[in-house]
Amino acid sequence: MKKYLLLTNEELKRTAKPYLIVVAVLMLLEFILTAAITKMHEGKIETFMRENGVSMQEAIDAYGKSSFAQVVASGPFLLILGAGMMVILISAFVIWYRDWFGKTNYIYRLLLLPGSRSSIYFAKLTTIVLLMFGFVAIQWLMFFVLAPLHDLLLPPELFERVSIAAVLERSGLMYLYDFYLPNFALIYLFALLLIVFIFTLVLIERSYRKGKKVIRIFLQFVILGAVYGATLLVINSDHLFANEKGMLFLAFTFLYLAFLVIIGLRTVSKKITV
């Protein structure tokens, strides 16, 4: 346990700086985008009024009121969110590869440390999961900062004040912030599955490096992934109640996750090559 905590602390220290820079850039982009989209809407209303000599109410009738939900639901804003998620997934590759290809060969030290090598795996996994939840939480806080900003940038008659719940609902982001426990578990179990899948791919590549064996093992995982996907499709048929589907989704996802974790741990313990 001590080894796991020490390694997690070390991984977080090594990741903090680049992570905070990326998150800060994305948040800054969200600020700029919110201001730009809001001001563009105001500009459209003003232009329409000027060119057509109509009242503000008539312009609003033509273009509608601006709401923060519209800003979030816009393509560019969702693109920034997607970029954040992509950074998390790329981090799942980087957190391993940097130990081989960084300025130093830290993988030697990690593998030489006394005690079980599973701590290395779980420390890296914990780090990525914390990065993911960190990003989701920061984004959640950003909604509470950007929504008033949006309203502040417009005259009161030009915007419609909406709740954060409505923002999430209209932008399709309610799945990320679903606080109903089974749904929350399912969404983040999927995310965890994706991270663990990446870990398994990296560890197999780092163990066998190249050749037919790597391709064969990759294909096995693709086939297993397809079987898993097909199982979910079958479960999603009309013969089951929603809660039964949810439980089966959870059970099969958990099984596939456990399988991938076991493969990853076995690879780190027995097959990995510096």
Partner: peptide
């Protein structure tokens, strides 16, 4: 104890 011919500690 193993002493390799490369650096094994994080660079920072």
């Amino acid at each position: 104890a193993y002493i390799p011919d490369l650096q094994t500690m994080p660079g920072h």
